[in-house]
Amino acid sequence: MSAIPSSPLKAEVKKLNFYYNLVQALNDVNLPIAEKRITALIGPSGCGKTTYLRCFNRMHDLYPGNRYEGEIILYPDQLNIISPKVDPIEVRMRISMVFQKPNPFPKTVFENVAYGLRVRGEARRNLLEEKVEKALKQAALWEEVKDRIHDLAFNLSGGQQQRLCIARALATNPEILLFDEPTSALDPTATSKIEELIMQLKKEVTIIIVTHNMQQAARVSDYTAFMYLGEIIEFDKTDKVFTHPSIRLTEEYITGRFG
């Protein structure tokens, strides 16, 4: 563990342990999350990347028997996200997530993007329209769907559906946006569009991305954490991790000797 980011922090993970019932999946992990930067989590399958990411929006609370220890401090108000005293719904109102597979609801494009706003009680039509349009523009989808905003989302292509999911996550102005292998179900063209979009988005929002694809991490992220067996082996600026990793295991992974 090294390299405290020079930019201000949006969140800080301190001695986080996570258990699925009796099985420990994360072991004393620490990680600073720089504000309006992209932090990538890489590592072989089963190393705990996704488990780690899902701690940030308390997704594990949906299933019985899961347990957190330690802290994830959200700045500026220093809220400990994983404290049992903090309502997971409050956390999820501030931290959105984009999942591995595009998963729009069987609703129209408009209603998909408006979902988060509607559960927050927003019913004013003109405000919804304004925010939906803004989110779709942020997700670089507006031009493609503006004429069929009231069509079913299933009629969009896979890549468009994933950008729709990004728009849906953005519509509520989250402070952090979590990406869980967002391009693993997409073709190369759609993938590069999403990557471009993610790089654009860091101007407005802090991003944490889990990826299997090391080139992707190298292309889009500012900081990279390499995880193995539930621990963070190395964390540093992305350039540094990919050009001069300081730990042998990291080097072996990024050069493809295992994983």
Binding site: M59, L62, I89, R92, S96, M97, F99, F105, V119, T172
Partner: peptide, 15 residues
């Protein structure tokens, strides 16, 4: 109903 619908709804702050 696929479990993903539930996860998405919760992830967007739904009760």
């Amino acid at each position: 109903i696929p479990y993903s619908f539930r996860e998405v709804s919760y992830s967007l702050g739904g009760t």
